[in-house]
Amino acid sequence: MSATKVRPDLVYETPNDGAVFSVGSIAYSGALPWNGFDNNISHLTSNVLKRFMDPAPSCCRKGNSSVATQAR
């Protein structure tokens, strides 16, 4: 039996400098203010928004479609 790699991509950057951030959960926004915004969801959101505002070229042009998996 062969193992299939499955990963959830929250962020997809296109070759033309477009980007999509998708979480797929109705509870996502309710989790942001929990613990005074000091939680994993708030940190993840902050990292994604910082990347979207970064003028540096996209890290994903060479086939890596996920920014969330990269350490920043």
Rank of each mutant, 00 (worst) to 15 (best):
A3G: 07
W34F: 03
K50A: 09
K62H: 04
A19C: 07
Y12E: 09
V11C: 07
Q70S: 05
L44I: 00
A56V: 13
S2G: 09
N39R: 09
A19P: 11
N39V: 09
T45M: 05
L44P: 01
N35H: 10
T4N: 11
P8M: 06
M53S: 13
S42P: 11
F21R: 14
S66N: 11
D38S: 11
S46F: 13
K62I: 00
S22V: 03
Y12C: 11
A71K: 05
P33S: 09
S29L: 06
C59N: 01
N47K: 14
N47V: 01
N16H: 13
R7S: 14
F21G: 12
G24E: 11
G18R: 15
F52A: 13
H43G: 02
N16Q: 12
I41M: 08
Q70L: 00
I41K: 03
A27P: 04
G18P: 13
R61A: 01
C59V: 03
S29N: 06
D17Y: 06
S25E: 14
F37T: 11
T69Q: 04
A19N: 08
V48Q: 05
N35G: 04
V67F: 14
R51G: 01
N47G: 02
C60G: 08
V11Q: 12
A56H: 14
F52W: 14
M53I: 02
R72N: 00
Y28I: 09
S22T: 01
K62F: 00
V6N: 13
A68R: 03
G36N: 15
R7H: 10
D38P: 09
F21E: 13
C60H: 10
A56C: 03
S25C: 07
T14L: 04
L49Q: 07
V48K: 03
V23C: 06
Y28D: 08
G24P: 05
S25P: 13
S66R: 00
I26V: 07
S58K: 06
A71M: 12
L44Y: 03
Y28A: 15
N16E: 10
T14V: 02
A71T: 11
P15W: 07
A27K: 15
D9T: 05
S46M: 13
G24C: 05
A71Q: 11
R7D: 15
P8L: 07
L49A: 07
N64C: 03
N35A: 02
G36D: 12
S29F: 05
D54S: 01
S25F: 08
F37C: 04
N40P: 13
Y12R: 15
C60A: 10
S66Q: 07
A68T: 02
A27G: 12
S29I: 04
P15Y: 06
S65N: 11
S42C: 10
T45C: 05
S22M: 01
Y12P: 15
L49S: 09
H43M: 00
A19D: 04
T14P: 09
P33N: 05
